[in-house]
Write a protein that binds this DNA or RNA. Structure first.
Lengths: 346, 346
DNA sequence: GTGAAAGCGCTAACAT
DNA sequence: ATGTTAGCGCTTTCAC
């Protein structure tokens, strides 16, 4: 009796593999692989056979294995504060759509405006050996930055631009937004602005807009006023805050909001109380969200050019993909600017 | 000159690997692996050494390799029509957050309400050998269904419930939503409802609500009226559609919208034209979006229990993960229901 | 143009 | 409790 060593138990994860296709098409696996990646380099006859085999077996390639073997994963990770926030969800879906054209998969993570959560998201993202990693904003935990600097992954920070990014940044200065909006409001004749913000301790960019606003007022000798709430921005919060503003600062003649969502709540509440906007009080928002143009009154706001941000992020990713470790990825800061959109609320 | 055969080019993808950690800690790679997966099975002394080595090298494990080796990927794919839609983005972020607790990564894809796009997303998703795949709705292309039936991946369809899902479904009947909303409107004394919908040919669920609405009216002998627009739902669209409704159906006494977003636009436009809601005309929406409760008037709408949907989806995924191919995954349909939220717009 | 062979970084069965 | 070893499914030289 031959002593058969018992066959190692087969842990099978995938029903039909490239090897199965190769067998059926009577070619080698590497030919199938070639056909899948560079069809033009395979002869028509064999192409036909492989195609038939793939169809017949309903074969779906395994990217996990592919990524491991090629050392070049087709994954890009994006970390945003919140996908529920219209700014970020639209940026993300644009980036996603563009990269999908290149056969790149986009992983999205929410940090819920927490730097600690961001840190673990980045760690998870790195575990996927991404081709690039996109973060929101320039402020990150020390550990996050260390993790990122230690490796060669291209890092793109978006929605904020300032001199020293980890690698590249695409966005604009939120301080400048606050500054210019304050000047805009003053130019319209208002003199007692109140900045209304939500969750400013966590929403770093909104805090910068508040700071820019304050700086502009101080430059003109006006004392800046801030009303802040720890809750997340919402229309409901806007309703509540109108109360607080009017109570705490009855002299207020214009409310500068950190978000259109809050401004919308203020419009609603003002309507309910018969407070005329812009008669009794002026109003501005941020984000140029869809409803801002159509509401009554239409809200003066800031267009953050999120399409442009998405476009530049995609361009940077493609650039990095092309260079693929050839030349060193240079640091780059792209300022996509912003525009103040003047409407009836002022 | 010695003729050196050039060393096989090293394509290095990762700077520091488990082998490096093992070397530094003076243990075998499998011990490091064990420490990472089941720390309790490694002696304290060695644990300490491994931990130090990991810290020192700033090691991040490679999930791609791990997934390939273990045949059990920690990935779940979700396909939604649009992340810009507040319903789906909140469901997705809830599922994401819950699964993150279990160390599972969530991949999100948008099909932009297209079944063809969905098909390619599902194909891409399968390429990641996901632990489960979550789709939105019950209608999919023939090829999508075939791909899914052919393999063993657990499939969960959400936001819609009906008898024969691919495997499991979590949601509610949109037909019933339309039906009950119509009856609710009639019970309030309205007699000439117009259903206003956006992109009904692609938004299958909205179309079902329209059908349910029509069915209820017909049952009461009232001729159903539909105003439809091929564009995506937006407040701007709502503004435009009020015009059309009033022009084409001057007898209309209530507008039943396929979405709160459209209803909001109608509120805005009605305000502009001094058309009283609910005086001259009643209004209802769908989705119970945040602004619906605070706008003037507050919008009567439908709460889709998206939290409950997310919760049940997560529960199903966990169940499947636990069973892990042990017992066959049985088909299951969970009706999470919905509630009509009566507010001032009616 | 096609195939053989050597891994990518990790896990898991098995042996110690 | 720790180490040895054989792959997971694919890509990529390199030889033919």
């Amino acid at each position: 009796m031959a002593e058969l060593k018992p066959a190692r138990r087969r842990r099978k994860m995938q029903s039909v593999t490239m090897a199965d296709v190769a067998r059926l098409a009577a070619v080698s696996p590497s030919t199938v692989s070639l056909y899948l990646r560079k069809p033009s380099e395979v002869s028509p006859a064999i192409s036909e056979r492989v195609r038939t085999a793939i169809d017949q077996l309903n074969y779906v390639p395994n990217f996990v294995a592919g990524g491991l073997a090629s050392a070049g994963s087709r994954v890009v990770s994006i970390v945003v504060p919140s996908v529920r926030n219209a700014f970020f969800s639209s940026t993300v879906s644009q980036i996603e759509a563009a990269l999908a054209q290149d056969g790149i998969l986009t992983l999205v993570g929410n940090n819920e405006y927490s730097l600690e959560v961001e840190e673990s998201l980045v760690r998870a993202a790195l575990s996927w050996a991404p081709a690039a990693i996109v973060l929101t904003g320039l402020k990150h935990s020390h550990a996050t930055i260390r993790m990122l600097r230690d490796r060669t992954v291209p890092v793109i920070e978006m929605w904020e631009a300032a001199p020293e990014p980890i690698m590249s940044a695409v966005g604009f200065s939120h301080h400048k937004v606050g500054f210019e909006m304050a000047n805009h409001v003053l130019s319209k004749g208002y003199r007692r602005p109140v900045f209304v913000g939500a969750r400013l301790s966590r929403d770093v960019r909104a805090a910068q807009r508040a700071a820019g606003h304050a700086a502009a007022l101080e430059a003109r000798g006006i004392r800046p006023t801030l009303v802040e709430d720890p809750r997340a921005a919402s229309t409901r919060l806007g309703c509540d805050l109108l109360d607080r503003v009017l109570g705490e600062h009855p002299e207020c003649d214009v409310i500068v909001c950190s978000s259109d969502v809050i401004a919308l709540g203020i419009v609603f509440e003002a309507g309910r109380r018969n407070i005329s906007i812009p008669g009794r009080i002026g109003l501005t928002g941020f984000g140029n969200l869809e409803f801002s143009a159509t509401c009554n009154p239409a809200i003066t706001t800031v267009e953050p050019n999120s399409d442009r941000i998405a476009g530049e992020v995609v361009a940077l990713i493609r650039e990095n993909l092309a260079e693929k470790g050839t030349s060193p990825v240079r640091s780059k800061v792209i300022d996509t600017g912003f525009q103040i959109i003047a409407r009836d609320s002022l």
